[in-house]
Simulated scan of single mutants.
Amino acid sequence: MELLGLDSFNLVVRHGGFGAASRACGQPKATLSRRVRDLEESLGVRLIERGGRSLRLTDEGAVLHAQTASPVEAINDALNDIRAGLGRPSGRLRISAPILFANTALGVLAAKFIEAYPDVILEISTEDRFVDLAADDLDVVIRANPRPDDTLVGRCFMRNELVLVAPPGLSRPARVEGSAERLTFPAVMRMGTGDDDVWTIIDADDGLPRRYHPKAVLRLSSPLTIRNAVLAGAGAALVPRTVVAEDLASGQLISWGTASGPEIEVWVLHASRRLVSPKVTAFVNFVCDHFNAPTR
């Protein structure tokens, strides 16, 4: 049966060889080898180059793995769910999340999720790069302001505004009545921002817009690192409110106002063209419930 051969083939590719795949699944190495060989014969092409010390796919093998790994695993997930009890979340759940979200919220969320669903094994990678669910062998991605993609579906579970924060001792630029405001101050900024950036801020005191011209004294890649630099007195910075909420509450930082414009939206997403397993549905709903996201 070609589906059985496909399953064995993708298992071998995922684990990097017949021996590792055999140890992972508990099936004899000879059985896996025979199934892959039968699949090659049925297709009339070689999929794996034999004889090397490491696994090497042929061009045909690489194409077959890229196009079948995710659908075959989705079918296996569905079969396993049925065997374990219809609708019962179980098995490995692979998630990609942004570094900031992972550092500030994901640890607690993951611990509560596995307490609620002990048969699910979470595997979480933290990265800010663009990921492809099929190519990167993922079930779920969490992303801020994701670009439109008709291959993904999901829900927005959190909105986050940008707030201009400073240490209490930093002098705030004085407003000049009757002038075109372009108030300059020392700033800690994200890498990639320009020297001519202007931030339009809704003032925390009177609710009126102010135009600030940040003068970069540091450029850093992480909002958490930026927050730490501001706490140390380097300057003011525009950061997500969730990063500095406790600092604002304790008075270690003060708010000069919030950025005008749309808020940051954080989404939990999964593939739209694959079987949605109970574990994926459970995780999406759990995340949204955890952050009290409105129902659709």
Rank of each mutant, 00 (worst) to 15 (best):
residue 237 A to T: 04
residue 60 E to F: 03
residue 243 V to I: 15
residue 129 R to L: 11
residue 142 I to K: 05
residue 141 V to N: 05
residue 183 L to H: 04
residue 10 N to E: 10
residue 255 S to H: 08
residue 249 A to F: 00
residue 235 G to F: 00
residue 91 G to M: 06
residue 74 A to P: 04
residue 86 L to S: 09
residue 65 H to E: 09
residue 200 T to E: 14
residue 234 A to E: 10
residue 88 R to K: 15
residue 77 D to E: 09
residue 101 F to H: 05
residue 245 A to V: 12
residue 131 V to G: 06
residue 287 V to E: 02
residue 127 E to A: 15
residue 108 V to H: 12
residue 171 S to Y: 04
residue 205 D to P: 01
residue 51 G to F: 12
residue 167 P to H: 03
residue 17 G to R: 04
residue 261 G to K: 05
residue 73 E to R: 15
residue 241 R to V: 07
residue 78 A to F: 10
residue 153 V to F: 04
residue 22 S to Q: 07
residue 202 I to Q: 12
residue 275 L to I: 15
residue 266 V to C: 09
residue 70 S to E: 10
residue 267 W to N: 12
residue 24 A to H: 15
residue 255 S to V: 10
residue 243 V to S: 01
residue 82 I to V: 14
residue 54 S to N: 13
residue 98 P to R: 05
residue 275 L to P: 04
residue 267 W to G: 07
residue 93 L to D: 02
residue 32 L to A: 04
residue 15 H to R: 11
residue 25 C to W: 08
residue 95 I to E: 03
residue 56 R to M: 08
residue 184 T to Y: 00
residue 286 F to M: 09
residue 90 S to C: 15
residue 101 F to P: 04
residue 4 L to F: 07
residue 239 V to P: 05
residue 157 F to N: 06
residue 194 G to F: 08
residue 68 T to C: 08
residue 124 I to P: 02
residue 122 L to N: 12
residue 287 V to R: 02
residue 124 I to Q: 09
residue 60 E to L: 00
residue 284 V to G: 07
residue 177 E to C: 03
residue 130 F to Y: 12
residue 182 R to A: 14
residue 31 T to L: 14
residue 132 D to A: 11
residue 201 I to Y: 01
residue 150 D to H: 13
residue 82 I to P: 00
residue 151 T to V: 07
residue 4 L to V: 13
residue 255 S to K: 03
residue 172 R to H: 04
residue 215 K to W: 06
residue 121 I to M: 13
residue 41 E to C: 06
residue 294 P to G: 07
residue 111 A to V: 00
residue 54 S to H: 15
residue 42 S to W: 01
residue 197 D to M: 14
residue 73 E to T: 10
residue 103 N to M: 13
residue 284 V to Y: 03
residue 98 P to E: 05
residue 74 A to K: 02
residue 98 P to N: 06
residue 295 T to V: 11
residue 270 H to F: 06
residue 51 G to C: 09
residue 275 L to Y: 12
residue 82 I to T: 11
residue 236 A to V: 02
residue 31 T to H: 13
residue 77 D to A: 13
residue 195 D to P: 09
residue 253 L to G: 08
residue 67 Q to W: 12
residue 209 P to F: 03
residue 60 E to Q: 15
residue 97 A to P: 02
residue 92 R to W: 06
residue 296 R to A: 08
residue 199 W to S: 04
residue 174 A to K: 13
residue 293 A to I: 00
residue 47 L to G: 00
residue 262 P to G: 03
residue 93 L to T: 05
residue 81 D to I: 00
residue 136 D to Q: 08
residue 183 L to W: 00
residue 154 G to K: 05
residue 195 D to R: 11
residue 208 L to T: 14
residue 254 I to K: 12
residue 209 P to H: 02
residue 19 G to P: 01
residue 218 L to E: 11
residue 248 L to D: 02
residue 75 I to L: 15
residue 74 A to G: 13
residue 287 V to F: 06
residue 235 G to T: 08
residue 18 F to T: 05
residue 10 N to A: 12
residue 25 C to P: 03
residue 66 A to F: 05
residue 203 D to W: 09
residue 55 L to F: 14
residue 228 N to L: 02
residue 276 V to H: 04
